[in-house]
Every structure is written in structure tokens, then in C-alpha cells.
Design a protein around this nucleic acid. Sequence first.
DNA 1: CGGTCACTTGATCGTCTTCAATACCAGTGG
DNA 2: CCACTGGTATTGAAGACGATCAAGTGACCG
Lengths: 245, 245
Amino acid sequence: MTVPLSRPLVLEPNSAADPCAHCDARHASVCNAIPDGDMARLAAAAVVMEAAPGTSFINEGDPANYFFNVTRGTAKLFKLLPDGRRQITGFVGVGHFLGLAVSETYAFSAEAIDHVRYCRFSRTRLRALLDDYPLMEKRLLEVASNELVAAQEQMLLLGRKTARERLASFLASQSRLGVSCRHPRTRFSLPMTRGDIADYLGLTIETVSRTLTKLRSEGLIEIPSATEVVIRAPGALERLAGGAA
Amino acid sequence: MTVPLSRPLVLEPNSAADPCAHCDARHASVCNAIPDGDMARLAAAAVVMEAAPGTSFINEGDPANYFFNVTRGTAKLFKLLPDGRRQITGFVGVGHFLGLAVSETYAFSAEAIDHVRYCRFSRTRLRALLDDYPLMEKRLLEVASNELVAAQEQMLLLGRKTARERLASFLASQSRLGVSCRHPRTRFSLPMTRGDIADYLGLTIETVSRTLTKLRSEGLIEIPSATEVVIRAPGALERLAGGAA
DNA sequence: CGGTCACTTGATCGTCTTCAATACCAGTGG
DNA sequence: CCACTGGTATTGAAGACGATCAAGTGACCG
């Protein structure tokens, strides 16, 4: 599990145009706390950047000078132990905000899974924005609260669920992703590798693979390709995820 | 692991006096965001309550009508699986704020370990307070951010650390508790049971007991009584906690 | 095609769990 | 004072789940 050095690409110095107003992530992001008329101000504080697959754009321990807002693609957040053991703390998609830490340094690393585009805000400029737009601070608090709830759920998974239950939980949550509302999808693709899934669920690659195979042989899911999943028995999967025998 | 029904005790309707100004937790809590002159307003929004050891004052799934601020004692937060498996997501002490969830219901339960005293704020009144005191909202965001960092650290522990490392991490973090600053304590007492520690670290009671015994026999710690710990080799313990062989 | 990389599958191993017995301690009542 | 009780902690032996080690498969790509 090596962590390639990041060499992020700056796309635009952002003096031109009005990128924030047409941002793909605006509807899903905390940026929607800023009124339409003030988009220029928001744009001035942001720098649009890209990270190629496999490159990291936040490194645990580095000075936390920036906040980030993912506008495209998927990234993984993780922490490492000195001997290389890795725990992925989350996968983040469009609209997700990163780097809320109060600390002087980042508490985790972030690495692009597919092609990731993101906005980078300097801490001081974001601070100024938050001071001027209390609504944005409120939205951030909401987001942070929700992440806290998700983190607690993940602790339950890591501390007390079996491998089967972990995979079921993971698949169930993936099936709910991106769906703005209503019913979960029964078919979707996984952008991350088995290794990523393993490090997210506190398992090994082999156990992930074996358990998926088992779920397939039991008819709960189908695996058309390594990156595609079809949920055949949503109810049973959900029950399994919840820890019911 | 049964969860006794809670029967919290209301101490004061809070029309009298000025309890918030002399609150033990004021220095450690988000309440210090409210200026001294407006203490009466804060007090009017709060109801002081108590929970006896072993009683729960938040139940996962209940309507989240209140926010809480612990002013005395220690409580444990946890989530349960249908078959009784329990994951303790944190121990909270004086000054700790609870119930930030945006959701309609609580995502976890809270149970008093020793005698707990806490302030209860109705959601609507707290909302009004936050609207009037943006500084308090800022403080809440800070607190939430820090908890998020702690949660990620705990995920690393639960997903990737060995039993030895988990206990070492736990003891190291306990040694840092309550010390307003500077150096960690080398002697402290554990208010929680072995069962609580086990459910916090994703282990069993037996493994916790065995591992503590091992650490003692290796001279890293002493255990004068079941609830007392002395750190004999802080450096080695810290190294172990960090995952270094 | 040969090479790499991700994934799958098999066999063995080890850490932690489970099951069980014992020790310990505080509280209660004979 | 001591026996009894219930809860908590420790210790031991056996077992299981997931990890580790190892081999094999398949897809993609130069």
C-alpha cells in the first residue's frame, strides 16, 4: 500500500469567469449557503485543482493550510500506522468537504481513486467567508454532525460486526449513495479496489473476496464484473447489515 | 449488557439564581461562548438534571428533542446491535456536549457511569441561542471537528490495531484526560468496568483482562486495584499505542 | 505474447473469542 | 463474626474466525 506522492494540477487561478455559479457540486455542497449574488466572492477564495487516480492531495501530518471541496470523482481518506497498516476512514464524493480539523496539521491523508476535481480554500479566506456568511457555518456544523453519526456507525461495524455483516453494511450503504432520495439502487459499480474495501472494513483483501463470493453463491448479490454489483436480495442484505442473524 | 431504564431527576426548574455563571463545566464547555452578562438567558434555556450510575439518559432511536451538556461525572455513549453486541463510541466527561445530530432521532444511547449531572437544552431553545450567539456555533463546530478527528483515530484502532496496541492506546489517552495542559498523569483511576473498556476497544472482557495482566507482568504498568492504573513506562506505552513494534 | 496488476481460491496458522472455573470484593443478614 | 449473595475480575482450555502464506486465474496493455 504505497502512497504515491501527489503533484496536484492547478487548473485556473480563478480571476476569470464565474466557476462557482455553475459548479457541479453546488447543490450538494456547503457552498450553497452563499447567496447566488455573491458567487464571485466564493470563486475568488477557491482554486480549482485536479488529482489523477492514485495521487494523494492531503498528507497526514502536513500543515493544515487548506480546506477542500470535492466537485468530481471519488477519493479515499485514510490513516496509516508506521508499519504500513492502513485504515480508510471514508470514501468521499461530489460535494464533500474536507479538512475541518482545528489542529495545525491534517489528521488523515486523502488520495484520488478516479479522476478527482476539487476546490481548495485557504484557511484564512475560508475563515473570512464563514464570518460573513453564518449560514455557511451552520451548514458546516450540520455536515460535521452527520459525519459524526456516520463515524459512530462505522465504529460499531469495526468493533462488533462480523466479516459478512461488514460487507453487507458496505454494499447496502453503497447502494444508497448518490441517490438523491427515494429507493436505493440495486445495481452499481464500485470505484475502489478490494484492497480499499478491506482497509475500510478492517479486513484483508482475501476475506473481502471470499465473503463476496459467499454472498454471491447464496444468491444475495451478483458480481457481473469485479467492479459491478447487483443486489438480488435487498431485504436480506439489509437485515444482515443490521446484525440480525 | 442490559440497559436499565432511565428515570432522570430534575433538580431545578431554573427560574431562580444564576447557575450557569457558577457552573463547574463553564470553562470546559461551549457555554463559555456566551458572554458573562447573558448568563441568565443561558440559564433560562437549561434544565439541570442528574442520572444515577447505570441509568441511561439518552436512548438510541428516541426523538432527539434535547441537547445535553455534562457538568459532572462520566457517561458512556454506545450503539447496540439487535442481539446485544455493544460498541461504546466514547466516554464523555465534564464539559462535553451531546446530541448534535441533525437527525430526528438519537443515533446512540448514553448511560451514566458514576453520578452524572448535566444540563438539558430543548432543541428549539438551543437553536435560538445559536442564532443569537454565532460564537457559540463556531465553538460547536470546533468541538465537532475535534470529535471527528478522535473518531477517525478510533476507527484506526478498531480496524487495524492489535489487542495490545488498543489497550496501550486506551491507557495513554486516559492518562492525558482531564489534564488541562502539559504532561500526562502517570497514575489515575478508571471509572468504567472491564466490560466497558472491552466494548470501547472492540474486544472481550477476558482479552482486556489478560492483556492488562500481560502489560503489568512486562513492567509497563501497575494495577494497584482493579480501578487504578500506574503507568511505569510512558514512552514504551506510547510507542506501543502508535503501532510501533 | 510476456508482463503486470487485481482478484480469486486453497491450506495452514494465530489471535482473539468462547466456554468454564475460580478468585475477589462489597454489601446484607443470620 | 461469618456465611451468603451478586457483581466484577482473573485465569485456563478449547475453538473459530479471519489472517497469512501461497498458488492460480483473468484482464488489460505495451
